[in-house]
Design a protein around this nucleic acid. Structure first.
Lengths: 207, 207
DNA sequence: TTGTAATTGTTGCAAATGCAACAGTAATAT
DNA sequence: ATATTACTGTTGCATTTGCAACAATTACAA
């Protein structure tokens, strides 16, 4: 049984609007949702759309650290001060609720009836995020590009073993932290080996 | 200012013993602390010593996914059912407090005065864990072994730019997901380049 | 619609990396 | 004290990977 079902998330959103000073905001494609800040501690919750956690190092190399989607949370609390710059960037139209960290640790009102429930849901959302991070670490622990691709595909394929590239091969390569041309080359090899079938942006996993 | 200072962690441990049905247990070197289980949902808190999150794939390859130390939390809730097996293994003598997940989501007693505080501390511990995971992802996003080594060393060096290998080079290679012999080779190259100085298990970072 | 920018697909090549093997050393157990 | 096991350090070699460059295609904006 999932700990975070639709009903609970709906309740969560309702509670939020009753309890904490929340701010809701809509972003369009490639807008900055949140950047590292030790001052304004915020937790964000995606109610609609998608976003990426993007890192840029001092040489200007950009990597996609994480994909975020509806019902995922993120926070500048998750990042340490670093040489690299880390941003949350919208991927298409994205609606976000911002929750002030201090509203969580301090009870918003005396005995606010919603507070407990909100904190517990945030707790479970954090666990869910933690799980996703572990998956990413597991993905990156794969030794070869082929293994990474297979792990990635198997995680995302539907019932019919089909995965559709909704973003781009470029984005996938960035997500896997591998060279794009090498990703293409490996996909071709995998097709020759019979591991996958590929028709443009549709991939069928055969193993 | 740190959100999780010594005082607060001390209070946390005290509260735990007053509130939730906790179990404290001591493990010796290389013992199994926790494994994946969808039934018994537990959160562990390390009060003394160190541990590793270790993954073994179906070919038997073992990788160290994370290092855990005093005041870190872990949970089988953080892992999804997977082909690979994931365990928490003690690294030397390790003391752990186990907290039942259901004791967190259900208030242990009516209006237990400790509960709120415990949940909030767990919340912050989760954020801290999240941060550490992001650091690991950032580490793995580095393109070359040299970059990985430097990132790893800079994170762990002391005020005098010294890092002491307390575990083993083998363990570090596993943590960086790189070949051990290649790690040694790169260390040698880095020494020749003047990036580091090395005397057995003591490394001085010079950049 | 047309021009511009972004993505895809491909390849040669150099460099980085993993693998295997082995000797030497250190740590641990008997 | 000695045997056994684990770790360190090194190397040759094959393979994988990233990089650079380019044409072809697709998406997007003026």
């Amino acid at each position: 049984m999932k700990t975070l079902d639709e009903t609970r998330l709906l309740q969560f959103k309702k509670n939020l609007s009753n309890c904490v000073n929340i701010k809701s905001k809509t972003f369009y494609n490639k807008e900055l949702i949140l950047s590292y800040s030790p001052i304004k501690k915020k937790i964000g919750f995606i109610t609609e759309g998608k976003a990426n956690i993007v890192k840029t190092d001092k040489e200007g190399n950009t990597t996609i650290m994480r994909d975020l989607k509806e019902n995922d949370i993120f926070s500048n609390l998750f990042f340490q001060d670093s040489e690299d710059e880390i941003y949350i960037i919208s991927n298409g139209e994205t609606k976000v609720i911002f929750i002030d960290y201090y509203n969580i640790i301090k009870n918003c009102n005396q005995n606010c009836p919603f507070h407990n429930s909100i904190v517990l849901t945030l707790f479970d959302l954090l666990i869910e995020d933690n799980k996703q991070q572990n998956e990413k670490i597991e993905l990156l622990s794969k030794r070869t590009v082929e293994e990474k691709i297979l792990f990635f595909l198997k995680q995302r394929m539907n019932k019919n073993n089909i995965f559709k590239v909704t973003t781009s091969y470029k984005a996938i390569a960035e997500y896997l932290f591998v060279d794009r041309s090498n990703l293409m080359r490996e996909l071709k090899k995998m097709e020759e080996k019979g591991l996958i079938e590929r028709y443009e942006k549709t991939i069928k996993i055969k193993s």
